[in-house]
Design a protein around this nucleic acid. Sequence first.
DNA 1: TGCGATT
Length: 324
Amino acid sequence: MLPTLWEQFGDEDSKTNLIVNYLPQNMTQEELKSLFGSIGEIESCKLVRDKITGQSLGYGFVNYVDPKDAEKAINTLNGLRLQTKTIKVSYARPSSASIRDANLYVSGLPKTMTQKELEQLFSQYGRIITSRILVDQVTGVSRGVGFIRFDRRVEAEEAIKGLNCQKPPGATEPITVKFANNPSQKTSQALLSQLYQSPNRRYPGPLAQQAQRFSRFSPMAIDGVTSLAGINIPGHAGTGWCIFVYNLAPDADESILWQMFGPFGAVTNVKVIRDFNTNKCKGFGFVTMTNYDEAAVAIASLNGYRLGDRVLQVSFKTNKTHKA
DNA sequence: TGCGATT
């Protein structure tokens, strides 16, 4: 984790108030208080939670009585491993309206770009508070997606103007820069949808039997195995087989993908692609399955499947992009 | 006829 400009300079007015980031999801305010209370006397402590669900948003504030204890907490607790997380402890910036909504979501990054290079690209527009590049959990390879939080919203706005749809130096494709979603929205959605489904459940029985659960609407045949001949392993992402599902309805959600593909075998991920503003499905989604054979049977069975009044098209994902 | 990604 790179030190940010903010951490390098600190703030003379707030030497007792700390922000703690990347907390484990299940950590309570009491546990946060207990951990930081072991350093010295705490004036106040707050775990930030989703307004609706009460779920932890993974960060909180700890205010010490003595600035020396705050400094000691940074020195001893920053970088501490808690379960799967490495927590970050730093001085909190004074709260104000100008620092809100300054968080950017960046996609289309070259896979070779490092966090440092990402910061260099954006630093011309203002003071960067945090940055991150998302990586594949298995391979450690960049997913080409990241975040930049600026000190002030106006800096983030300028960065969008200057960098959205532009090619970074040496890159062959333009990047997308926009304001990041509010994470609390997703937390609520995920929690609510979990009330209605248990995604990894598998039905018993052989594959052929599972396939029969789905009747074919059109005879548009795909042989999942032979159609692969001469194709450059489409859909294979190292961690599983990625399947493209087209012609989903605007109100389609993740649960329908779990329900359709789960019976064919191990599904590790589903995603409905939505328009940011309307939150309606853009008509397609993705499903990742662990095993090739099961993915091939799912594709052969579900391509041409009639879902409501729509005929789905299902295939291994290709890497085509939106370029004309 | 359309192939993403939200710490």
